[in-house]
Computed example of a mutant assay.
Amino acid sequence: MKFTGAICIAFVIILLSSLALTNAVVEDEKLVVCNPKELEPCSPAVKTRSKPSTQCCAMLKKEEPCLCGYINEPVYGQYIKSNNAHKAFSACGIPPLHC
């Protein structure tokens, strides 16, 4: 019985650590794998204040559960926090971030 319990605990630890490595988020009981590179179609909107493309809005909606996590990443945080990004969020129907 002790061995089975130890195995279960080890499995949970491995599962949780693998989620951290893949930047996964659990939202509404669904696993969302976060990939900030999928936001590349939004680059023109964030850099030049242009209107976000349909593809950008689709990616923003897909990555919405991950946006607060990106804020703390040095490479992506500056873009997610920018006024242009917030304008793109608004244009795509993404509510203001409350992280």
Rank of each mutant, 00 (worst) to 15 (best):
K47H: 01
C57V: 11
P52A: 11
V33A: 08
C66W: 05
D28F: 08
C42S: 03
A45N: 06
E27V: 13
V32G: 07
K51D: 12
L39R: 03
K87V: 09
A85S: 11
G77L: 01
P74W: 00
Q78E: 07
C66E: 06
S53V: 10
G77I: 01
E63F: 12
N83E: 14
V12A: 10
P44M: 07
K51Y: 10
I80C: 01
C56N: 05
K61C: 06
K47E: 01
A6Q: 03
C34K: 08
C42H: 03
H98M: 14
Q78I: 00
S43M: 02
S82W: 00
Q55I: 13
I7Q: 01
I9S: 14
H98P: 03
L31D: 10
D28H: 15
E29S: 15
V46Y: 00
C92V: 09
S90K: 15
T4Y: 00
E38I: 05
A10E: 02
Q55C: 07
F11C: 05
I80L: 05
F89I: 07
A10V: 09
C66K: 04
G69N: 04
M1I: 00
A24P: 00
Y79M: 04
A85G: 05
E38P: 01
E29G: 14
C66T: 09
N23K: 11
E29I: 10
L97A: 09
A91Q: 15
V46C: 02
G93P: 04
A20Q: 13
T48E: 07
S18E: 13
V12Q: 07
M1N: 03
N84K: 00
T22Y: 14
K81F: 03
N83F: 04
N35K: 11
F3E: 00
S90C: 07
A20D: 12
S53W: 12
P41W: 07
Y79V: 02
E38T: 08
A45F: 03
